[in-house]
Structures are given as structure tokens and as C-alpha cells.
Design a binder for these strands. Sequence first.
DNA 1: CCCTGATTCGC
DNA 2: GCGAATCAGG
Length: 240
Amino acid sequence: MGWTDERIATLKKMWEGGSTASEIAAELGGVSRNAVIGKAHRLGLKARPSPVKANDKKKPAAPAKKPAVAPAPRVAEPRTEPAERSVTGEAAERPAPRAAAPSPRAEAVADDGLNAVPSQPVPGPPADLPKIVSVGPGGFLRQGPGDQQAPIPPAPPRRLVPAKPSPEIAGKTTLLDLSEKVCRWPMGHPGEADFHFCGVAVNPGFPYCVEHCGRAYQAQLPRGVRRPPPPLPFGGPRVR
DNA sequence: CCCTGATTCGC
DNA sequence: GCGAATCAGG
């Protein structure tokens, strides 16, 4: 991967924008963090808050080396006393280039058209539909254990965009409209464009309106079976 | 350990 | 010119 003008421009922008070398390398792709740093220095744009630059001691001697050259075996060296540790009271005057350290990294990702949420999130095969074992209240489909599919969620979008209400549910009670005051009975099937909720005033103390309470709480007793006192709405008088 | 940038040096 | 290796601080 070579350094095209475009990539160099991205490098410059991100580097001056405060992005780290790793982030720049990831954004560019095909290059390592070291490559980015090396290129940045070669371009002349350096001088950024470095965690290693605070040191200014007299230490220009042999820091980085690895291969080839033998490390100079100092065996028969007439060692003089290691008294070079002159403890100077440095750090007295150090402006400490800890200037403002903004983090505009997240903003470095410019608008590139990839932010729009795709309207086709799941590329599931439309051919073979899952076998429906039963239909639950509101029409949601119960499936057998082996019938589950679409296990892998789509890649998360780079940035979340507020979804615009589709015309199908305009004026309807959506999931976001639910509260303790409106009926939560689902209307239609989840996933459908016009899926919404009942939305009328609830039967006080219940999550559904009176009508849907009648559907949700159906008395189904085996005939002749004596029923304990109904717990609703408040459990009834305490018996002892 | 992880991260960071700086530096060196073989290619 | 390039970048892996290495250093060194947080």
C-alpha cells in the first residue's frame, strides 16, 4: 500500500486533528501504526503530546537497535565509577506542553454516506419461511426450537440516525409511545411496517384497555373446579 | 499487561 | 522513502 496523495492528505488531517497513529492506521488500512508515525515525521508534521517526550535528560546514546551489530562486549573495560548520576533538581521550569488536549477523534469520521441505515437489514432468504408452530396473542409467531434463524445481526452502522416515522405508522401508537397509560396490546405483527399498539386508555391497573383485558385475562377453569379467591385486582381480603 | 509517540536503521 | 523493531512514558 503506497502513500498516495489522498492517503497522505487523510493522514495529515487526522494527525493534526488529534487522532492517534493507531486510529489513523486503522482508517487508512493496509498500514501499521509505525508506518503512520514514520510517515508523519517524514512529512514534517510532528510535535504532538507524546508520553515519551517529556524526558530531556542527556541520553542521546544508543537507544534503539536490534539486529546485526554486536552489542560491543565491554568485558575488559576499565570501569570508572558510575558517578554520572548527577541528581539535578530539574523539572523546575518546564512549561509542560500539556496544552488543551481536545479529542475530536470521533468527529474525524466525516460524512461519507455510510451513515444511512440500510433499509434491508437482514439478508435472510425469502424462499423458505420458518414453520409456524402456533400463533400467540397479537399474532406473533411461535416457532419451533429448530426453526429459529437470522441469528447474525447486521453490522452496526457507523452512526445512529434518528429513524423517521414511516407513513404506515403515522398517528399510530409505536413502541416509543408506550406508557403506563395506554394499552400495550399489539396490533399486527412485529416487523411489519404498520405494526403498532392499541394505544387507548388502559384499564386502570392493567397494561391493556378494557377490551383487550378481556382478551388477555380469560377465565378458563375446568368445570366444577372450585377456584380460590381471585387475586385481582388487589388480592382480596386477607384470610386467616 | 495495555496504550501512546519517538527513534533507529536495514531495506 | 518506507516501516518493523525498539525504546520509553502513561
